[in-house]
């Protein structure tokens, strides 16, 4: 048995936002949530508007987890985000 296969799959979290204040607070909040829950995840920020539009969101900031939009237009609390990523 290959132990490599047992490693949990890394969660792919993207913060979509063009750099407004709310986008920065979402980035901070999700990083805290990842740290708090110990989820194996990589958080990246997407600032390019063309790339953001490909997700079909019209309100920023938005949060994409494994390719699925889970948050748009609002900044949830760290607790709410923690629930979102441990589900």
């Amino acid at each position: 048995m290959n132990y490599q296969d047992l490693k949990p799959i890394q969660m792919d979290i993207k913060v979509l936002g063009t750099g407004c204040a709310k986008c920065k607070s979402l980035e901070k909040a999700i990083s805290k949530a990842v740290e708090k829950t110990g989820v194996n995840a990589i958080v990246t920020k997407v600032e390019d508007i063309v790339e953001i539009m490909q997700f079909g969101v019209m309100t920023t900031p938005a949060l994409v987890v494994n390719g699925k939009i889970v948050v748009k237009g609002v900044v949830p609390s760290v607790d709410e985000l923690s629930k979102l990523i441990t589900k």
């Binding site: 063009t18 508007i49 019209m58 920023t60």
Partner: peptide
């Protein structure tokens, strides 16, 4: 409609699309 001016561009693009 809930709107923040920081979303002006994505909204504009979404409408145009």
């Amino acid at each position: 409609t809930p709107f923040c001016s920081c979303s002006a561009i994505p909204l504009f693009l979404g409408f145009v699309e």
